[in-house]
Design a protein around this nucleic acid. Sequence first.
DNA 1: AAATTATTATATGTATACATATATAGTTCA
DNA 2: TGAACTATATATGTATACATATAATAATTT
Lengths: 215, 215
Amino acid sequence: MARVADQLIETLRNDIRSGVLRPGDQLEEAALAERFGVSRTPVREAVRSLVDSGLLETKPRKGALVRVLSAKELIDLFEVAAELEGMACRLAAERLTAGKAAALEDALQFCRKAADANDQDGYAKANLAFHQAIHNAAGNSRLIEQIEQLAGHINPYRAMPFQMRGRLQKSTEEHAAIAEAILENTGTQADELMRDHMMLQGQRLPMILEAIEPR
Amino acid sequence: MARVADQLIETLRNDIRSGVLRPGDQLEEAALAERFGVSRTPVREAVRSLVDSGLLETKPRKGALVRVLSAKELIDLFEVAAELEGMACRLAAERLTAGKAAALEDALQFCRKAADANDQDGYAKANLAFHQAIHNAAGNSRLIEQIEQLAGHINPYRAMPFQMRGRLQKSTEEHAAIAEAILENTGTQADELMRDHMMLQGQRLPMILEAIEPR
DNA sequence: AAATTATTATATGTATACATATATAGTTCA
DNA sequence: TGAACTATATATGTATACATATAATAATTT
């Protein structure tokens, strides 16, 4: 059974992820109900669920709106995400198997190809695959869950095409160093490299925040 | 306005936290509605919310039940919680202010008193206060949010009175070492000490799991 | 007697109707 | 003309009624 509410959650989440809905946008139950041709009941469920997950927020008598994160909140988010990504690297190094190692090297190759071709979209996918290969090798499902939760909050602020020149090559080099550390079983170094890698992304936050301008 | 749904969430969460509701217990919407004298609507909201937060799970046509974590899932949970608690120590060491330092020392004293008096309940409170003092000093609200979320999932498995002999004194000594490291601004050491401290708790998990026996 | 099918009971999921509180706009009074 | 008060409109929160799917039980047939 495909619950309407679940479809709504998925749709709204994608809209936020992709930037169709921008931080600050209002969401009104009746309007959403009409748009999707359903009653307010499943709409309410979806909105509540997204509020709980932190993607939306409610203003007292104003309904729900796409959550606007302050600069401090975004930095905090990144800090935690960086820590958990680093942890994943450490665990991956400790628990690496032959299969996981191969997958990691494959993902790294994808990054290289996309970077060489200067393919932004391709790199976004390869980048995700690289990180996921690490998560997968870490062997901790809760860790993955937490990382994905945080990523879901960061994504709306990453949707803007805001790649710096040469960042793809640089990012790939960082990935290579991380992968090497994991493959060589030096977990603490992989941890540190990944945290630095993540924090470099974080440094662009002020610029991104300025460019987004919630409406 | 105090929404009924929010009160229900609070009540159910407490019931789970305190062990009134045990992992595996069934929750039926109609029954809850009658118990609290409200309609199914706010009950549904509360249940959905708790499912989203991971405290409940739904079986296809069986309604909601208090989520049962496998041993592996609990270990994963602890691993992540330990990492974030360690991170909090590292940040606290970096960002410590005079006021936060004093609060930390106070909390440590509470732990000492409760441990000396062999006061289990008192120690539970002091222990919480000690950790919160560190969280507070870390200056990252998202970190606190994540830690509390994880704690909410661990708590049902910690409700059982299962303190080992002498564990209070030992735990306090560990706290003291952690506090010292933070106060001396050696963040990485505080991080490691805290992770070890947390993992000692985690080691008792198999015993606790055996004792709980979901119904 | 056993197996299969049909029926009923009970759960969730959705729609609609109703209550209530707040914000806004309009009117009235000073 | 300005301020205050009232009324109305519009939002959320709750209750109730309805639809539907599944599981269990009973009945019928082989």
